[in-house]
Structures are given as C-alpha cells and as structure tokens.
Design a protein around this nucleic acid. Structure first.
Lengths: 197, 197
DNA sequence: CGTCGTCTGTACCGATCGGTACAAAATGGG
DNA sequence: CCCATTTTGTACCGATCGGTACAGACGACG
C-alpha cells in the first residue's frame, strides 16, 4: 500500500465491468477463466491476484457493483427524491440506458434463471426486493395507496425482466422500449386509475 | 425396426422430459453429460445411441418437444377455438399448470438469456413469435383491433417471462400467480378499455 | 542504484468436459 | 434354439475446466 490504491485494486475495478459483460453473455458456468482472462486482458496470475477467491469472487464483485450502481442511481432517488414523479421518470430513463434499450441482458435475471441461482441466491433476491421496495415507496408518495403501490412496483420489476427476455429471444431490442412505453402510464397516478392505451 | 417402435425411440421419448428438467435447472452449458446420464438413468452408450448428435441433439429434441406441446395445447386453440374467451382462459390455465404456478422456470427463456442463444436462436425466436401471434389472433377475434391485439399479445408473452424470472429470483412462486392475475383483465375486451384493479 | 514487496506469465495439477470405440450383453424374429 | 441386430457398460480420447505454485519481471521508495 505504497500509494493510496494498490495496482491490484485498480486492476480489479477496471476488470469488473468487463467481467460483468462476460457473465452477462455466457452465464456463470459458461464464463470460463480463459474467456474471462482474454476479455479483461489479464493473465491468470493477475486475475487471481486481484480476485483471490477465483471465479466465484469475480461474480460476487460483479453482483456487488451492479447492486451499488442500482442503489445509488435508481433505488436511492426513488426513496429520497422530493418529487416522486421525477424519480420515476429518472428510473425509466436510467433503466433504458443501463440495458442499452434492450440490447443488453440482465445479469441478475440470467443468474436467477439458471446456474447461479443457488450460489448467489441472497444477492439475486436483494437486487429485486431492493428495486421493488424502493419503487413501491415512490409510488406511495406519488399518490397510490400502499397496497396498490406494492402491486404496481412488483409488476414493473417483473415487466422489465420480461422485456429483456423477449428482446433477447426475438433479437429485437425495440421490444424492450415498447415494454417501457406500456409501463410508464401505469406508474402515473393521474393515468393509473383508468390507463388509456 | 422389428417392432413398430425401436427401444431407442422409446428411450428417447422417455428421456426427453428428464433432459428438459436438467437443461431448465442448469442451462445448456451447465447441464453436463454426467448429470444428464444420471438423471435419465441412461449410460453414455444408451444416451448416444438415442441421441447420436450428442448434447446438442438432446437440447434440440427438448426444444422441439416444448414447441410441440405449446403448439397443440396453447397456440392451436388460440387460433382455432370458436370462442376466443375460452381459448384465452385455457391459455392462462395451461400456462399456470405448465410452469407449476411459478415453481418451474422457462427453458426457452433461460436459453435466450445466456448460453443457448446463438446455438438455438431460431427455435427460441419461433417459440415466442408463435405464442405472440397466436395470442394476437385470439385477441383480435375477441374484439380488440389488430394493432391493440398485437400490442397486448406481446405484453402478455413478455409479462409471463418476467413473472417466471421474478418468481425464481425471489424464490417466491406466488409472484407468478400475481402476474397472471394482473394479466387476465388485460386480455378481456370488456375490461380492457378501462381495466380496474 | 539497490532493495524489497507487488505483480504477472507460465507451467502444471487433478478433475471433468463432450465425445468415440468397441466388446459384451440383451433382444427378438425365424 | 440360433443368430443377426440392437442396446449398453466401460475404457479411453484430447481438450478444457477451475485452481495452484512459483520464478522472475516490475516498480516505488530509500
């Protein structure tokens, strides 16, 4: 620890987004160390120096990074932004950007469906409950009664995942945008009672 | 081919549901031949005798079986059932049963998200377009205008996938049932214009 | 510039991967 | 019962899996 941040730490931070992309594309089992090494440009030595726990620690670091990103960019604003409609708009905008308008899958959703489920169950569940609960809080402040807000929040989180699956399955990223468009009015209390189409 | 059906063919048919379950739980990469063999009770010899193409052929056979099941049990009724509301009710009931009320993931969705995407892209896309288009036809016959019907059909297929992801991520199968409950009124033209909640 | 801790490429580990070869065993028609 | 065919267990293949060991390259500090 000569300087403030060791090289290993910097390598770790730099590697995480790349690791995330590989896990996103191939799942946990499908992301081999060879692939992880190639894409990050790090040899095995460096990789294990930055992540002594191996592949499992890499996946955990990626999940932590994702959780932090959503917590600061989406969940916290949903809870704390004075104007809930601003927070809701921001959520939709940030979500669209994060998932590259449907061009990018959800790593957490992919892990939930298959191989990573048992291994990372706690983190996976926390990602979704965090989103759902923060969204429910915003919807309540926006004027929905708590029960309705909770229901719509779960619907929104579920719908986003569905949109990502469909966009990927049809190789049609625009399906994700259409899903967001359908979702938007349902999060608006003025349209919520009798949503038009 | 002494008798009408060879033993290999019978073994193949008997193995497919088990193979489906293993692929569902572990994904394509995660489902090893050892696991596939153990769960089907078939040795490598038998497995390769029934599926000469190996693991890829097993997955294809499973995807074909799934497509056939949905085609006969859901898509065809959606297209052909004289009373579209009967077909829609049947779709929801059959879907709930097929996915064990959220206790079972969707293999096609899991493949779409990760490892099987490139390998099985055509079959994956066909599964979803088949469902969406058959549903859109039923909704049109039920009274929605074609554009609205297509939109609601896409929404329904997407929502079902989202419900499965969420149910699995939260380890809360009931989330799938809640999603179906939200979906039902949106497929009903009498409630569709101003859906209550 | 020398030194010492950090970093990293490489060789290697046992296990397992998907797949093949093949001989023995089961099977069923004549 | 016989024999041809189908079915199956087992041994084995090269490749790759995740992970370890470690020697030497590197880099910051005295």
């Amino acid at each position: 620890m000569r300087s403030g941040v060791s090289k290993a730490e910097r390598a770790r931070e730099a590697a995480i987004p790349v690791l995330a992309e590989v896990f996103r594309e191939h799942g946990y089992e499908g992301a081999s160390l060879a692939l992880l090494g190639d894409r990050t440009g790090l040899g095995k030595g460096s990789l294990y120096h930055a992540f002594p726990g191996g592949k499992a620690e890499m996946a955990e670091a990626v999940l932590d990074a994702i959780e932090t990103w959503f917590e600061t960019r989406i969940y916290a604003p949903l809870r704390d932004e004075p104007d809930p409609s601003v927070a809701l708009d921001r959520m939709l905008t940030e979500t669209d950007a994060y998932f590259r308008s449907g061009g990018r899958a959800c790593l957490v959703g992919a892990f939930a469906l298959t191989d990573g489920r048992d291994r990372f169950a706690v983190r996976i569940a926390r990602y979704f409950t965090g989103w759902r609960d923060a969204l429910a809080a915003a919807l309540t402040r926006a004027g929905f009664n708590p029960g309705d807000a909770a229901d719509r929040a779960e619907e929104a989180v579920s719908a986003i995942q569905g949109g990502l699956v469909l966009a990927r399955a049809l190789d049609d990223p625009a399906a994700f945008g259409r899903m967001l468009a359908r979702l938007r009015p349902r999060l608006d209390p003025s349209e919520g009672a009798t949503p038009g189409r």
